[in-house]
């Protein structure tokens, strides 16, 4: 997606090569197409484009990819803080 870059060095995406079987499903589902497959190895092309949606890790059959998934939404994060502060779960997501 040209013209947009968000904060650098914040993504929680990580890859464990030893677990990867090279099925390539992660490469397919990434909405920013930041993963590439060469042989049986996945390469993270540009980690700062990762929005931590969780699609890759959720579809990885061997848990070679991991990420703390969530929505990059100020309201959702504010509600999360409110819940933690008050010990409730009543504040929902944003959309």
């Amino acid at each position: 997606m040209r013209g947009y870059r968000y904060l650098q060095e914040v993504s929680t995406l990580s890859y464990t090569q030893e677990r990867c079987i090279g099925c390539g499903l992660c490469v397919q589902v990434c909405p920013h197409q930041i993963l590439t497959l060469s042989g049986k190895q996945v390469h993270i092309r540009d980690i700062d484009l990762c929005m931590e949606c969780g699609a890759c890790a959720h579809n990885c059959p061997t848990e070679a990819l991991s990420v703390r998934p969530g929505v990059g939404c100020a309201v959702a994060i504010l509600n999360g803080w409110k819940n933690r502060l008050l010990g409730t779960t009543k504040f929902g997501d944003c959309c």
């Binding site: 997606m1 947009y4 968000y6 904060l7 914040v10 993504s11 929680t12 909405p31 920013h32 484009l49 990762c50 929005m51 931590e52 703390r68 998934p69 969530g70 929505v71 990059g72 939404c73 100020a74 309201v75 959702a76 994060i77 504010l78 944003c94 959309c95």
Partner: peptide
């Protein structure tokens, strides 16, 4: 403007949390 992060398809939760700690 900070609220608009939730409507974009490229902001990560880690990033939004980071900017909110300063912006809010």
């Amino acid at each position: 403007a900070m609220n608009f992060t939730g409507s974009t398809p490229f902001t990560s939760p880690s990033g939004v949390e980071k900017e909110m700690r300063l912006g809010l």
